[in-house]
């Protein structure tokens, strides 16, 4: 058995171990390789930056806990950016598994940094079933869909909601998502109610979003952890996405290396089999 045959039959657990180590070492020994910005991330940042201070914006937590590593840094960076501009933030989630709890935790954590008060500076509407109906319903009356906030306080008792009745009172929707809800923010809310939608999505979803971006239906895009790192850089607040970029680099290089070795082995074995036949 030559080296290529041996490599072909290697136990997959060695590959798992390699993958783990390629992430472990850069996580321990962080190098902070410089992060370059992409135009789509800058577009999103500028869209928020150009909004008047104290504007009312909606920040959605449309993601499951499974994608936290990619999406949570986006939400945190967005909150920091918006509160630096003293914006009023309304959060909601169209995800029945985790979204509202994550929104509650993350907003309250970042609110402490900026001394923001619940009900005055931000409100968590929580979750209601059937997101297409929710998105339409918010256009005519937030209260008809969300009579209370996530924890059951009537909206009429929250000072911020006195002036916010529908999309007409909001300037921007910043959608952080790991699933198709972002498609509906674009195709229902942006298309029918004419409110700009910017988005931070998981890497798996990003390629599709370029089509909406190019059509002008989406105002800026963050794709995966790299997108989150770009936003952190623009906001000037180092976070887990920036720290994770070294590990991301190493793991990508390992995958490329594995593809190359796998293919070289494949062609060597194929040539050997061909020679043996002849």
């Amino acid at each position: 058995m030559d080296i290529w045959e041996k490599l072909n039959t290697i136990d997959r657990r060695w590959i798992y171990l390699l993958m783990f180590l390629s992430i472990l070492f850069p996580t321990i020994f962080v190098m902070k390789f410089p992060i370059e910005l992409t135009p789509e991330a800058e577009q999103l940042y500028n869209a928020v930056e150009e909004l008047p201070d104290s504007s009312v914006v909606m920040l959605t937590f449309d993601y499951y806990a499974s994608a936290l590593a990619e999406t949570e840094p986006m939400s945190i960076a967005a909150l920091r950016h918006m509160w630096r501009k003293d914006m009023k933030i309304i959060t909601l989630s169209n995800i029945p598994l985790g979204g509202p709890t994550i929104a509650e935790r993350v907003t309250r954590e970042i609110a402490k940094e900026f001394d923001k008060v619940y009900g005055v500076d931000f409100v968590n509407l929580g979750y209601k079933a059937n997101y297409v109906a929710v998105m339409h319903g918010l256009a005519s009356s937030i209260e008809s869909i969300f009579p209370t906030d996530y924890t059951g306080t009537p909206l009429s008792e929250l000072p911020l909601m006195e002036h916010v009745k529908s999309y007409d009172d909001m300037k921007f929707i910043y959608c952080v998502a790991d699933n198709a809800t972002v498609d509906y923010w674009i195709s229902i809310v942006n298309a029918q109610y004419d409110i700009p939608v910017g988005s931070g999505v998981t890497a798996v979803m990003a390629p599709k979003m370029y089509s909406f971006l190019e059509a002008g239906q989406l105002t800026g895009l963050l794709g995966g952890m790299k997108g989150a790192a770009e936003y952190e850089k623009m906001v000037g607040a180092l976070g887990t996405a920036t720290i994770g970029m070294d590990a991301q680099s190493m793991a990508h290089l390992l995958i490329i290396f594995l593809v190359i070795v796998g293919n070289v082995g494949f062609f060597m074995n194929r040539r050997k089999a061909k020679d043996a036949k002849e």
């Binding site: 472990l24 998981t202 390629p207 790299k226 887990t240 793991a251």
Partner: peptide, 27 residues
């Protein structure tokens, strides 16, 4: 070409999730 780009992004996404777990364990 598009699926290749999608594949590259998918690799990126899956690795990011593992990074999140390793960051928790290490830090």
């Amino acid at each position: 070409i598009s699926f290749g780009a999608h594949f590259g992004y998918t690799v990126m996404g899956r690795i990011s999730l593992l990074i999140g777990r390793v960051q928790f364990l290490v830090y």
